[in-house]
């Protein structure tokens, strides 16, 4: 699996949480643009964790502010 595939999968996973239909770019912020609250973040992270069978701790999440950073972080975890 490469970055493009991870990007595509996460794009599908984010859809149900993207209530306002914000256009997703690498620079799209979870707090600022998507206005995710803490419960949404938990559910969204859980969806990604279940899909890729990985764990993204809150400490790691603190470093991830936008979509591009998330794809990078997940890619790093799944591409060994």
């Amino acid at each position: 699996m490469d970055r493009a595939q991870v990007d595509e999968t996460i794009r599908t996973l984010i859809a149900p949480f993207n209530k306002k239909g914000v256009a997703i770019a690498d620079s799209t912020g979870f707090a600022g643009d998507l206005e995710f609250d803490s419960l949404t973040v938990m559910d969204f992270v859980a969806a990604i964790e279940d899909e890729f069978d990985i764990i993204i701790s809150m400490n790691q999440q603190a470093e991830i502010e936008n979509f591009g950073q998330l794809v990078d972080a997940v890619t790093k975890m799944v591409v060994k």
């Binding site: 938990m42 859980a46 964790e49 069978d53 990985i54 764990i55 809150m58 400490n59």
Partner: peptide, 27 residues
């Protein structure tokens, strides 16, 4: 207490046994 320490923090949905198990399994 989590914030004060240095451990990795992994929350799960309230009272959800399966969600808890999945996270434990992936550590």
């Amino acid at each position: 207490g989590c914030k004060l320490g240095d451990a990795e923090i992994v929350p799960f949905r309230h009272n959800d046994i399966e969600a808890m198990e999945k996270r434990l399994r992936r550590i």
